[in-house]
């Protein structure tokens, strides 16, 4: 029997929001959130199932693939929502570079049967840097801009806080695995991590809602 955590429900909530408002996501880069959320929910449920049945290797294999796809999808969203040609180019080159790095790591360094913590760390750093790109543009935009009405702002803060919180964990994970982490610490990290996932997916749901609101506003204007 699958036991779902609160963060699983947060992910499902975002998926349901994206399906309900799918029409408003059309013709926007945020349409990619639908397959992304479908993949995430499916991966989490499958991972849960595999965990219960102690099929840890398959579980790691599954997340080794989905996390790489996740990062590429986030980079794509930043690429589409940043205006500066220079920053856009950096993100554009970062996408294939990340895939290559992850492939090299999973094939030759950490192996496909171990979780790719090194490239998770690289992916996290990329995300944090891209969030700063977005914030920099939001700072310097010469037109009046209401950030809470920008879907990308919500996605950015969701990703920013999630990956900031996850950064030290990803950084120290190989060390902790080697030296056996204390149960209490592991529990604390899990609490932080789970809450950050909930926060991240609530932000994604708000982004989807804002997207549909903007669409409605522009319809009313026209």
């Amino acid at each position: 029997m699958l036991t779902l955590s609160l963060y699983n429900y947060a992910e499902m909530l975002a998926l349901i929001a994206s399906i309900i408002f799918y029409k408003n996501l059309f013709k926007t880069p945020f349409l990619i959130l639908i397959p992304y959320l479908l993949m995430t929910v499916a991966a989490e449920l499958t991972g849960n199932y595999l965990g219960i049945h102690h099929r840890y290797k398959e579980n790691v294999n599954l997340f080794n693939i989905t996390t790489v796809i996740e990062f590429v999808i986030f980079y794509f969203l930043f690429y589409k929502n940043i205006n500066s040609a220079v920053l856009k180019n950096i993100i554009l080159y970062a996408m294939p570079l990340y895939v290559v790095l992850a492939a090299v790591n999973q094939l030759f360094i950490q192996g496909f049967n171990n979780f790719h913590t090194y490239t998770m760390l690289v992916g996290t750093v990329f995300i944090i840097v891209f969030v700063f790109f977005y914030f920099y543009e939001a700072f310097s935009d010469k037109e009046p801009l209401s950030l809470p009405k920008e879907p990308m702002f919500w996605i950015s803060i969701g990703l920013f806080l999630f990956y900031l919180g996850d950064f030290t964990y990803n950084l120290m994970q190989p060390y902790f695995i080697k030296n056996h982490m204390q149960k209490e610490s592991f529990h604390l990290f899990h609490i932080i991590n789970n809450n950050l996932i909930i926060f991240e997916y609530i932000c994604f749901s708000i982004a989807i809602f804002v997207c549909s609101n903007n669409r409605l506003a522009s319809k009313l204007q026209s």
């Binding site: 806080l161 900031l164 950064f167 902790f176 056996h180 982490m181 610490s185 990290f189 932080i192 950050l196």
Partner: peptide
């Protein structure tokens, strides 16, 4: 691993957040 080290890492995480 001693708990104090892990606690420090958790504290750093919280500071980051």
């Amino acid at each position: 691993q001693p708990f104090s080290f892990e606690a420090a890492i958790i504290a750093i995480t919280i500071v980051f957040l």
